[in-house]
Design a protein around this nucleic acid. Sequence first.
DNA 1: CTATAAACCTGCTGGC
DNA 2: TGCCAGCAGGTTTATA
Length: 269
Amino acid sequence: MPELPEVETIRRYLNLKLVNECIDNLEVLNESSLRCAKGLSVNDLKNQYIKSVSRRGKYLNIGLEDYNLVIHLKMTGQIYFNPPIPPINHLRWVLTLKSGSKIYFRDVRKFGRLFIYPKDDVKYLLAGEIGPEPWEINLSYWQKKLKSRRSIKTLLLDQKVIAGIGNIYADEALYRAFIHPKKKCLDLTLKQALDLLKEVRTVLDCGIRYGGTSFRDYLGGDGKKGNMQDHLLIYQKTGGLCPRCGERIAKTKVGGRSSHFCPKCQKLD
DNA sequence: CTATAAACCTGCTGGC
DNA sequence: TGCCAGCAGGTTTATA
């Protein structure tokens, strides 16, 4: 469900609420939602203080004294912090703090995961397996990655190349940069490459500013929906009119994901 | 290398 | 009204 802006919105909220709290216990209702590093168990979390709440790409990381709690929400994961009415359906785990505060994790499709790692172990996962944050990318890195025969949308969605972009923001950035999602990376001009990186950042910044995109499941840390869905230009607007040229917005398939674009503004040749 | 499909899961929607 | 194919903010793994 969530891409970088949604995860960042949750991170900012939890960061205000969790730092200096102490863990009482973790109750797991769906075993497959939890992955413990070898030799660890949920009991190890007891009495651990929360030092930080950070993010890498679409991963949320609750830093403890001796461990890291790494969360990936995948398609339908939702975080509820001290909700007025606790969720009942599709509840996968509940983290209780000494203060009495609770974090509920609800996840309809069970794709989401909570990983427990030793403190120093997580560096490997987060630095080695995930590409740079979009704002950290420099031109030489970007040009190097664009020397590829893959389609540009596939590259944008590759978390090893650039962290945090998902289907919504990929379509939005490509539209704003006038680039067809199936365009081969190698065929991009330097200007297109620069424009695209700029629009990726713009669109993600915008998503964060509006508290994320709530199409169906996504909720910010405060339990409220985001507003970015009211500011999208192309995603899920098949059959509607392009806000720039009036052409009908089309849909195609790229890398198995539905991709929305304007056939007139985003030419393939 | 690149692309596609299937898996992992459940629920909702739209067409017939 | 009812059924069913198809689809969904993601990632990984197998197959062509």
